[in-house]
């Protein structure tokens, strides 16, 4: 199997795992981590497409796009972590109310 195919399949696997984590875990920090796992999967897949023509040289454009994408994902994650921290500090909760997870015992709901 060509190495680009292996990278592509790994990317797809990461996307699937991340999506599973995003949906099943109501904990907000875990969701942010899952978002990053999905993102890494997409970047890996994107990188693998750079070598899609075995004859030609590797296409450098996806690398540039991936780096930009990583910066964007980093910014979004930073904002997300900041919001989760502020939310946990104000409410004492780490999940959103309607997501069905038990709230921390002993803390009043909001």
């Amino acid at each position: 199997m060509a190495s680009s195919s292996i990278f592509g399949l790994c990317g797809a696997l990461l996307i699937g795992m991340g999506l599973y984590g995003f949906i099943t875990h109501p904990h907000l920090l875990r969701r942010l981590l899952a978002f990053n796992v999905i993102g890494s999967g997409i970047f890996l897949l994107f990188g693998a497409t750079a070598a899609r023509l075995p004859s030609a040289a590797t296409d450098p454009v996806p690398q540039a796009l991936i780096i930009t994408g990583i910066v964007v994902a980093l910014a979004a994650t930073a904002l997300g972590v900041g919001l989760v921290l502020a939310y946990a500090r104000v409410t004492g909760r780490t999940t959103l109310p309607e997501d069905g997870a038990p709230t921390d015992p002993g803390k009043p709901p909001r």
């Binding site: 978002f35 904002l79 997300g80 502020a86 939310y87 959103l96």
Partner: peptide, 16 residues
């Protein structure tokens, strides 16, 4: 609390 919760919900949808 309300605003932060709403922002987080928005962020989760937007991220996906």
């Amino acid at each position: 609390a309300d605003g932060l919760g709403a922002a987080l919900r928005y962020l989760m949808f937007a991220l996906l």
